[in-house]
């Protein structure tokens, strides 16, 4: 059974990755990195594979561990075979880097990375959805504020204020929220 160490700054994501790896039949352990602790964890577990967030600064510490000890997993990025190179490229884009012991056959690695990759992507999608929802909400707030300002300043009703904003946006070829932001910014100077 392959031993996999997951190093991740996000404990939530680490949990998700570990769970899916366990379901796929791997022996898993996770650490939240402080670069200082990594050598100890790696020595204690002697993992076959280490998965780490590409955005973690602790990657350089792992690089050193694999450089000083042959028994430690080594960075794997470009495989000679096209299919694997593709997997690793998408892994890097999704934010996961892999370190693998020399004894692990590339075929066995592919599966581990695919599991992690799917989990990373799902996590990323969730985050994007959250970001998108937050963005929409803040846009709506801006538009509401601009409408309110127009209603007050020009004595328009809500519908007319909205249409005034929309007409200007269409004329200028800009987004409604940009025009609304302009109104809010302008008002803060004038009022």
């Amino acid at each position: 059974m392959l031993k996999v160490l997951v190093v991740d700054e996000s404990s939530e994501r680490a949990d998700e990755i570990c769970l899916s790896l366990v379901r796929a039949g791997y022996l898993v352990s996770a650490v939240l990195p402080n670069a200082m602790d990594l050598p100890r964890h790696v020595a204690a577990m002697s993992p076959d594979v280490i998965l780490i967030d590409t955005e973690s600064p602790s990657r350089d510490t792992l690089e050193h561990l694999s450089a000083i000890n042959r028994a430690n997993p080594r960075p794997v990025l470009l495989f000679s075979r096209e299919r694997d190179a593709q997997i690793i490229r998408s892994a890097l884009r999704a934010g996961v880097a892999a370190y693998v012991a020399e004894t692990v056959a590339p075929e066995r690695l592919g599966a581990v990375v695919e599991v992690a990759l799917a989990q990373f992507e799902e996590h990323q999608n969730l985050r994007q959805e959250r970001d998108e929802a937050a963005r929409r909400l803040s846009e709506r707030v801006t538009i509401e504020r601009a409408k309110g300002l127009l209603m007050k300043a020009r004595g328009l009703d809500e519908d007319a204020a909205y249409h005034a904003l929309r007409r200007l946006a269409m004329e200028r070829g800009r987004k409604l929220v940009e025009i609304a932001q302009g109104v809010v910014d302008g008002a803060s100077l004038l009022m």
Partner: peptide, 15 residues
């Protein structure tokens, strides 16, 4: 970028 390893890998892969 967060690490030298990341710099190296992203340059290697053309990212």
């Amino acid at each position: 970028e967060a690490s030298w390893a990341n710099i190296r890998d992203k340059v290697s892969l053309g990212e």
